[in-house]
Design a protein around this nucleic acid. Structure first.
Lengths: 217, 217
DNA sequence: TTTTTTTTTTAGACTAATCTAAAAATATAC
DNA sequence: GTATATTTTTAGATTAGTCTAAAAAAAAAA
């Protein structure tokens, strides 16, 4: 149905149109795909004939509902495989992304259903990101980054941003995993660093780090 | 290192050169790859510059030791994934081939080591085929097809040929799985069908079926 | 041994995905 | 509101893998 490349474009378009209600621009997509604008133009023409996006020249692309459910199925596969790698094979969460990027393109609906069952129908992946169900339904919780919390806040870590492997290594070291308790002890005006309690462990984190830890809003 | 297509050619060349010590001919490879001889000629030129095969015009190809270990790694992955699908996800053995054909191309040495460990370092896959170890070593047992056995023979099924999904379904139905006991009760001269005992169950099998069940020689 | 058949290779063309360079459209600045 | 800068698209080329049709080599038959 869709080539590996088409699937990757679709996923990128989906992620870029998350949140923002605007059309995705050619250059933004080129950046996300580490390719050139000319290549993007070619591909979005192809994808729009397949009706997963709508495309107006010079104005960017919008994902259709067909495209959205296609993208969500790829994301479902990605997150189920990440869960498998961590929960069953003992990978650490900073190692799983690249492998899941490959595994998400395996085409077998039966495999994914069986895998989901084997994992006990997990709701979130190891980074706290929600796993779409087999109908493509995803539970979007409004999440707040820790840097926006008030001193005194108490709650649980819901998710962490999984963009950077080194960040994940660090978060793992200080114990900042989804599900662990967190309390804001103090905030330094000067550099916006924070003192927080993770489970029962006091740590100081910089602003960048605090922006990448998320709690339920 | 190797493209998906290159890996599939390499695997086919490996299998075609198993047993026979002769060079693999262009047409045989074209047949195995469901492609045309002209395409094969192009690809074997490419593979020989990569030094996984040697190629002499009009005389066919021979796999090099580099090519052999490359092929064995793909086979290792294929058979470990098949074992995973059957043992962990509850697939039946006639359903796993196509999915494993995809999974065998996932490139992550760490994943395969972890998977091997998770499965308890299995020696054979669900069809009884040996799984190469992480050094590419494979235990080749001389196997004899049941149609060549004498009446009165007793032993265990070591493997079954996994080429055809319908055959596998049938073998599963009569209980002919690797590890089960087998005894030859009789042989019909006319059509070479056989009466055999599987575990403690009497069944009649045709010649074709008897050629696809293997015991240790 | 010469002829015929079969197999294999070459030549040239096609598709998917990419690129560079140039042209066209849109956005920004003065 | 015209000029400049930026973004996007088009044009044409490239690589991997495939194809058909024709040429060349090897094998089989007469």
């Amino acid at each position: 149905m869709f080539s590996l490349t088409e699937e990757n474009y679709l996923k990128a378009i989906y992620h870029l149109s998350e949140g923002g209600s605007k059309a995705v621009l050619t250059n933004a997509l080129a950046e996300a795909m580490s390719t050139k604008a000319a290549s993007v133009t070619d591909m979005i023409k192809k994808l729009s004939t397949k009706e997963v996006i709508t495309y107006e020249k010079y104005y960017g692309v919008n994902i259709t509902s067909k495209g959205k459910s296609e993208a969500l199925m790829i994301i479902r596969k990605h997150r189920l495989w990440e869960t498998f790698l961590v929960d069953k094979l003992g990978f650490s969460w900073d190692e799983v992304h690249e492998v899941a990027e490959q595994l998400e393109h395996i085409n077998s609906p039966r495999l994914i259903e069986k895998l989901d069952e084997f994992l006990g129908y997990p709701k979130v992946d190891p980074h706290g990101d929600p796993i779409p169900d087999n109908k493509g339904k995803i539970k979007v919780q409004p999440l707040i980054p820790v840097d926006q919390l008030q001193v005194g806040f108490q709650g649980k870590i819901a998710a962490v941003k999984d963009s950077d492997s080194n960040l994940l290594k660090y978060l793992d070291k200080i114990g900042a995993r989804p599900g662990t308790k967190i309390k804001i002890l103090g905030k330094e005006e000067y550099d916006e660093s924070m003192e927080i309690l993770i489970e029962d462990h006091r740590v100081f984190i910089s602003k960048v780090v605090s922006q990448n830890i998320l709690v339920v809003g």
